[in-house]
Write a protein that binds this DNA or RNA. Structure first.
Length: 296
DNA sequence: GCCCAGGGGTAGT
DNA sequence: ACTACCCATGGG
């Protein structure tokens, strides 16, 4: 077990970053964020410009834990510049769109896009189809807990690393059904069987954003929404613009843009270039917190 | 473009 | 306790 203090850059908010919906398996309990990145279990708590970190290992991604965590948490993104660019852009918008956009930037300050694993993102966003966040977490955790060999102990608690493709290939349709994955079962089963190795996901890094989307969408269960989440959160394609019901609502309200997921996505990627992904996350978070839960 | 696909969380009663 | 409604969608 390792304990240390991680110094954060200007503009970083752990609660917003882990709680905005880009990641599913992190959970906040007793004021600590608890989760697993690759094979390392972690507990984190931010206090001002420092994060208290408790980890099961001093290595992550085969690197020094501190170096790897800075990468994972998106410290490489020039967030000050990104927000400046987005503010400049927002000032060219019609009055309402400008006001709402600027407020969403203000309230989401410190949100950073995580560097998550593309294969894990693919599986979890297929699970996210027509599903809510607590259920996505439950299903993803249940899938991980099938493999006892993946268990990691930290501070008296048990965590499970996300399984790799070799492990998931061994699962039968019946075993998957026990996880109550419902209509997502055949999509996941076919994904596990049809992909030869996780090299497939590694190789996609070389391709353009459009080519990545096209390649991912060849698999059943992956449409524009799921594919754009995988590219944004798994490949750091910061111009990806995932479109769900909330973003459709926002785009209609602010820009009077309606239509298919594809159409709205292409509008966002063009109009909010090159940081459409950050703009999407900030707007999404603001709109959900404002209108998402009925009672104020 | 329309409709359906399981199941669980959650607000309202 | 019970019900109705919702859910970061995709496929036929």
């Amino acid at each position: 077990m390792v304990k240390y203090e991680l110094r954060v850059p200007e503009l970083f908010d752990l609660d917003i970053t882990l709680g905005c919906g880009q990641t599913f398996r992190w959970i906040k309990e007793d004021n600590w964020w608890k989760g697993v990145v690759k094979d390392t279990a972690l507990m984190m708590k931010q206090q001002g410009r420092e994060i208290r970190v408790i980890a099961s290992s001093d290595k992550l991604f085969g690197k020094d834990l501190d170096v790897a965590l800075r990468y994972y948490l998106g410290f490489d993104d020039p967030l000050v510049d990104i927000l400046t660019e987005l503010e400049k852009l927002a000032k060219t918008f019609p009055e309402t769109a400008k006001r709402i956009s600027l407020r969403s930037f203000e309230e989401g300050k410190g949100l950073r896009i995580l560097r998550q694993d593309p294969f894990e993102m693919t599986v979890e966003y297929i699970i996210s189809t027509r599903n809510n966040i607590p259920s996505i977490r439950k299903m993803s955790d249940a899938l991980s807990a099938l493999f006892h060999e993946n268990h990691i102990e930290l501070n008296g608690e048990v965590f499970f690393a996300f399984p790799d493709l070799i492990q998931l290939k061994k699962l039968s349709v019946e075993k998957l059904k026990e996880l109550k994955l419902a209509f997502r079962t055949p999509w996941l089963y076919e994904l596990f069987q049809n992909i030869d190795s996780e090299e497939f996901f590694h190789d996609l890094r070389k391709l353009s954003l459009d080519e990545k989307l096209e390649s991912l969408m060849k698999h059943k269960g992956i449409g524009f929404k799921v594919a754009s989440c995988v590219t944004l959160f798994g490949y750091t394609e910061l111009n990806s613009f995932p479109v769900d019901v909330w973003i459709k609502r926002v785009m209609k309200d602010l820009f009077n843009i309606e239509g298919s997921t594809k159409k709205v996505m292409e509008y966002g990627m063009k109009e909010f270039y090159p940081y459409a992904g950050y703009y999407q996350e900030l707007l999404f978070r603001y709109y959900r917190s404002k209108f998402g839960r009925r009672k104020i």
